Every structure is written in C-alpha cells, then in structure tokens.
Amino acid sequence: MKDYRRRDVALAVGLSGVAGYVDAIGFLKLGGFFVSFMSGNSTRLGVGIATGQWTMARTALALIGLFVVGVVLGALVARKAGEDRRSVILALVAALLAIAAALISAGFNTAGVAAMVLAMGAENAVFQRDGDVGLGLTYMTGALVKAGQRIATALTGGDRWAWGPYTLLWAGLSLGGALGAAAYLWFGVLALWAAAALIAILAAAKAWRESLRG
C-alpha cells in the first residue's frame, strides 16, 4: 500500500468494515450465504453440485453472478465519472444499500438481497486504477497473504510495518461483521440503513474534498 496515503488507507479500512457489516446481515438473512464473500459462495456452489443440493447451487451461482454484475457496474461508473472521483462510486453504493433496505422492509426480499450484492460488487471500484482494483475491500484472503509476506519481509530486515495496513483491512472487515451481526439481531433489516447512511456521509465528504481539489 505504499502508493496510498494514510487517508486512503483509513477509507479502505472503513469500507472493509462496511462490507463485513453488510455481509454479516446478508449471511444471517440468507441462512449461510454471503453477499460480499464470493469465495464462500463458490465453495457452496461446488458442494451443492457434488451433493445434488441444487437449491444451494442455484442460490450460490445467482449471488456470484450478481456480484460480478455489481463489479462491472462499479467499474463502468468509475470510468465514466473518472477514477479519481471516488464520491460517485460511494454514492452509488449508498443508493444501492438504501434500495436494498427499502425493498426488504417492503417484503421484496429477493430484489433487496440482489441490491445488497450489487452494492458490494460496486464497492470494489472505489480504489479502481486504470481499470483494475487497487485495493480489494470485500475479500480478505489476498490481504492476509500480503500481510504474511510483509511480516516475512520485516523478519528478514525489510520494512518493519508494511504488514500493518493489510492487517487493518482484515480487522476492519472482521469488526464490521461482528457489528453487522449484532445490529441484525437487534434491529433486523433496519440495520442496513446504518450502512447506507454511513456510505452516504462518506460520499458527501469525498465530494466536498474533490470540489476543493477542483
């Protein structure tokens, strides 16, 4: 993460926290499927196919497909708006989460969950660079691998703290997951509004900074 400023790292950790929060809500709502962690859904897809549990397989495949659509949507919006205008992607994610909360509250569970998954896919475009994901915000395997590699570098005389930001990304997602689960147990789907509101505030703050930058 050498190319990112501390402010960017803080934003990334916060967004990972939101991803964990939303993923925990989705996990509890769907009974063991994920809205941001597609490795888990891919495993469930394989298990479903192997064991003939076709409902499991169809659900996992649908979630994976929606996530990819969300990634495509986020990438296209980032390219259209300019990859340095992160406020636009944040606004998109906030809108999708608000739509998800509204739809599920109104009883349209399938459409609401679809909006959640689209939001999580689109969130990965916040740090898009030249059409590629600069920082993965909704999955932590890569971050943990990089943290381990940086620890090895530190142990052999390299940068002592390069592992820190990657560990913070993981910690942010894990803490967000705990908060999301607790919020869902207390408030049900209403907990999604908190995530939408937080992302909307971040979008407004980013838009203000971008306007000052010109």
Rank of each mutant, 00 (worst) to 15 (best):
T138C: 15
I49G: 11
D159E: 10
G70D: 05
F33I: 01
L76M: 07
V77E: 09
I49Q: 13
L63I: 01
T43H: 11
A106V: 02
G46P: 05
R160H: 00
G48E: 08
G40H: 09
S36H: 14
A98T: 06
L155R: 05
A154N: 00
A102N: 10
F108Q: 11
A60Q: 03
A125V: 04
A50H: 09
L169G: 03
T167S: 03
G112R: 15
V71Q: 07
F127R: 05
K146P: 03
R129P: 01
T153R: 13
A154G: 01
T110G: 12
L97S: 04
A152D: 08
M56D: 15
A57W: 03
G40L: 09
G164T: 00
D130N: 09
G131M: 14
V72A: 14
A50C: 08
V113L: 15
V88E: 04
N41D: 11
A111L: 09
A60P: 02
D132T: 10
A106D: 08
G112F: 05
G112V: 09
W163K: 00
E83P: 02
K29A: 09
D130S: 08
Q128L: 08
A57E: 06
L103M: 15
F127M: 04
V77Y: 12
T153E: 08
A81G: 04
A119V: 10
D23G: 10
D130K: 15
S36M: 13
A154W: 00
K146G: 03
L28K: 11
M116T: 07
A111R: 07
L118P: 02
W170D: 04
N41H: 10
Q53K: 10
G65F: 14
V71C: 09
V126P: 02
G40P: 09
E83R: 06
Q128F: 04
A78E: 08
V68F: 05
G52R: 01
S42L: 11
A106Q: 15
V113F: 06
Y166C: 01
Q53F: 06
P165S: 02
K29V: 14
G48I: 05
T51I: 12
L73D: 02
R150D: 04
L66T: 14
A101W: 07
I25A: 01
L168R: 00
G46L: 10
S36W: 11
V117D: 07
L103N: 02
R85C: 02
K146W: 01
A154C: 03
Q128K: 11
W170F: 11
Q149R: 08
R79K: 09
L135E: 00
